[in-house]
Design a protein around this nucleic acid. Structure first.
Length: 355
DNA sequence: AAGTGACTCAACCGCAAAAGG
DNA sequence: GCCTTTTGCGGTTGAGTCACT
């Protein structure tokens, strides 16, 4: 395994480590610790550069390294953390005891990323890949509708989407966006129920990855059309939060997860309007009842979308499908055993550290 | 059994940040 | 404040392995 040495300059060896080299490194570090990686190889009698020694130790020889398959909990943690942190592998690794950044990075690239892609979820934004759905929709509904040998999903590495409704709703989503962009949306625009189903599915996915305090949203804007970050809040919303902050003697950064949805839902976000408006906000906030709340006429706001975690009184329809309703065996392996609506943050996650 | 392509993962590279002088 | 050195991180590579034909 590994890379073949491309050169051996100055007697510095590269490539795979031998058991003898490993033993030398272990012996030296056990005796002297690993203070200076630069001088370590010389002192340890290794013909390696310090960088190589450090890497070998941190990724392989460290005694607290956990090897073997990632557990379901670990996988869920990685997905959650990645949705918050992006490719900050070392930070993610620091929340998974015994796992290295390299190992997590590899696991992400070889397993999780592909799995999400197959499910039609963008592994970068953790949002549905509407762009591909849109292309697919166009192609499926027009020129190539009857062509059995043309399949954009397979070309793009996606799982075949058999549910044509999903394609339609993707089109609807984009059309509604275009409509909105051009101010063509009628005041009484009725949101396509299929879109609602889709959003429900997406919210379920977000339940999986977004079970973190909202304060975490401050840092990376997750580019998720349904999940505006804290920094996306309008000044009015900030004002509400600040009022709350003043009344409770806390800072915004310390507002607890369970408080924000409650706080936000007390505010009528139908007034919410900014240039970078949420993709679905206008039609949804006017007409829809996404949640089976006790108030069936409650406006849909992103606050209610935000409040979907298990702490929320809002319960999604547990029979809702995940994106297109067909979860493969592979995906079931990862998600099937855990009820997404009941998913909880693993105890090892202390997201406050990200701040 | 042999060939082939996909997958895995240890290790390398280059860059940036931090530390030291 | 500037320069040099060291450390850490994220992206990428490619030999070994596996699965399929």
């Amino acid at each position: 395994m590994g890379r073949v040495p491309c050169c051996e300059k100055n007697g510095v060896k590269k490539g795979p480590w031998t058991p003898e080299e490993d033993q030398k490194l272990i012996d030296y570090i056990q005796k002297h610790g690993y203070g200076n990686w630069r001088t370590l190889p010389k002192n340890a009698g290794l013909q390696r550069c310090g960088k190589s020694c450090r890497l070998r130790w941190t990724n392989y020889l460290r005694p607290d390294i956990k090897r073997g398959r990632f557990s379901l909990e670990e996988e869920e943690s990685i997905i959650q953390l990645h949705s918050i942190l992006g490719n900050k592998w070392s930070t993610i690794a620091s929340h998974l005891p015994g796992r290295t950044d390299n190992e997590i990075k590899n696991y992400w690239n070889t397993h999780i990323k592909k799995k999400l892609l197959r499910m039609g979820i963008d592994p970068i934004t953790h949002s549905p890949r509407l762009d591909l759905l849109y292309i697919s929709s166009i192609l499926n509904s027009s020129l190539y509708a009857n062509s059995s040998n043309f399949n954009i999903q397979s070309l793009l590495g996606m799982q075949p989407i058999e549910n044509t409704d999903l394609l339609k709703l993707a089109s609807s989503l984009l059309l509604s966006q275009q409509c909105k962009d051009q101010n063509l949306c009628p005041q009484n625009y009725q949101c396509n129920p299929q879109i609602l189903n889709h959003i429900q599915s997406h919210v379920q996915y977000q339940n999986l990855v977004q079970q973190v305090p909202y304060t975490e949203m401050v840092e990376p804007n997750m580019m998720n059309p349904y999940m505006p970050s804290f920094t996306d809040l309008s000044s009015q919303q900030h004002s509400v939060l600040n009022d709350w902050h003043r009344n409770n003697g806390t800072s915004l950064s310390t507002i607890a997860e369970e408080n924000i949805p409650q706080l936000l839902s007390s505010y009528n976000y139908s007034n919410y309007s900014t240039d970078n408006q949420n993709l679905m906000d206008p039609p949804l906030s006017e007409t829809t009842t996404l949640h089976s709340n006790n108030n069936s006429n409650q406006n849909l706001s992103f606050a209610s979308v935000l409040s979907t975690p298990s702490s929320s009184p809002t319960q999604l329809n547990s029979s809702s499908t995940f994106i297109n309703g067909s979860i493969t065996e592979d995906e079931r392996e990862s998600y099937g055993s855990s009820n997404m609506t009941k998913f909880e943050i693993p105890k090892i996650l202390d997201v406050n550290e990200f701040m």
